[in-house]
Amino acid sequence: MPSTAIDEDTEERSSEHDGDAGDPVEERSRTRVDSALPHTKRLPPTVEYDGDIHGLRCRRCDNRYDPTIDGLVRTVECCSSLAEVDPDDIPICEVNLKLTPEERVLSEWSDTQLLFLQAVYNAQQLRYDPLEYDLLNDSMIRLQEYVGIDADALQDLLETDLLRHDTDHPHRLYTVTPDGRSAIGESYRQGVDYGHGQGDLEESSQHVMAVEVARRYLEREYVDDPSSRVVEVVPYYDLDENHRLDLAGVDVEGEFVVTVEIERINHDVKRAVPEDFDKMAGCEPEEAIWVVMTQSSGHDVLEALNDPLEGPVRVEKTYASTTPPQQFKINTAGLTAVYPVEWLKDAFLDADGS
């Protein structure tokens, strides 16, 4: 069931306006939903939020700063330094829930629940500065703390399928479902939010994370390498109306040099994996890279290509289940490497994911 708890800051402000106590729209209008700062349970030790001015203050000298990530950094560095701050204590700042007070009153969900849905959605859209929240490295438990949602209220969102728990590997990730997007008034626009170069329509946070890891890997190891023919990395490359590459590295003529498929193993693995293999093979790339979520998933991919549900065997070579996928030595049209996403990130990207 949806949470019926009233936000603490709403209770406090309502008590100051007895004349408006019976007007739920007025009560909701006093709760800020454009920012997480009034709600966060975590802030650096030298920083405090001032609700009267919707700004930040340095606790040591009382200087005031903007309620943005830039303002937060300036507040920290006013009388301290970022090096002295636990990165988890730097919260997201802007949330920008787009519902009106009237819409929030009509919603069956509390402001805190709506804020959390918006924060997760923003995170899976890569809208936050990595200092605030980095999808590649940060658990979404941090987002729970930044908007102040409790376990029961979060569980309600999961049980009603407004939110899905993707994974706890390598860190906890949630995804806002289509119903969740509707609850916060977020619409998907083809060519802007999804489509060629933008994203998949029903993409999970885990898939977004893996695509971003692979994109940074291709940029660093191919585009930035003078000896490579790759001049551009295109995520979500549409081949036609029904087929899309997760990533493509193309040369100056737009020809495929390297293709990448992000594979999240599901019940349809023996059909889906060979189809993805054929899709990449048809592009005739020099390299066809598979990025998987775990080591065992890499073996699931190989097994599906060794013994597909339909059609010929795609890959004949086999490996013991103890062999790390990154050690596979395979050179076929649709597979030249298999990399677990966490291994790829740790091996090729800097500590900050760049």
Rank of each mutant, 00 (worst) to 15 (best):
I184G: 01
P130G: 09
G180I: 00
L162R: 07
I149L: 03
Y133W: 12
Y133A: 04
Q125H: 10
M140T: 07
Y188I: 01
D150H: 09
H171T: 00
R142H: 12
I149R: 07
G191F: 14
A153I: 05
V147I: 06
T100H: 02
I184M: 07
D166W: 07
A151Y: 08
E132V: 03
D168M: 13
V192G: 06
R142Y: 14
L126C: 06
N137V: 11
P178D: 10
T177A: 01
V147G: 08
L143F: 04
E132F: 01
R181D: 05
Y146N: 14
H169V: 10
L106S: 15
L154F: 02
L135A: 10
L97P: 08
Q124G: 01
A123M: 02
D193G: 10
A183V: 02
Q113Y: 01
P170Q: 06
Q124R: 10
R142M: 08
L114S: 04
N96C: 13
H169R: 12
P178T: 14
S182A: 15
L173V: 01
C93A: 11
L135M: 13
Q155C: 00
G195P: 09
V105C: 15
C93N: 05
L131D: 00
N96G: 14
R189A: 13
R127A: 14
E103K: 11
D134P: 03
V120S: 04
A183P: 03
D138R: 06
P101I: 08
A123S: 15
W109G: 08
P101V: 06
N137W: 14
A123C: 10
Q144Y: 00
E145T: 11
L131C: 02
T160N: 02
R172D: 11
R189D: 11
L157W: 03
A119R: 06
L136A: 07
L117F: 12
G191Q: 13
L114Y: 00
L115M: 13
L162C: 04
L158R: 15
L163C: 05
K98R: 15
A123F: 10
V192A: 15
S107Q: 09
W109H: 14
R127F: 14
W109L: 05
V105L: 04
N122T: 12
G185T: 07
D179V: 06
V105I: 13
R142G: 12
V147T: 05
A119Q: 13
L163T: 04
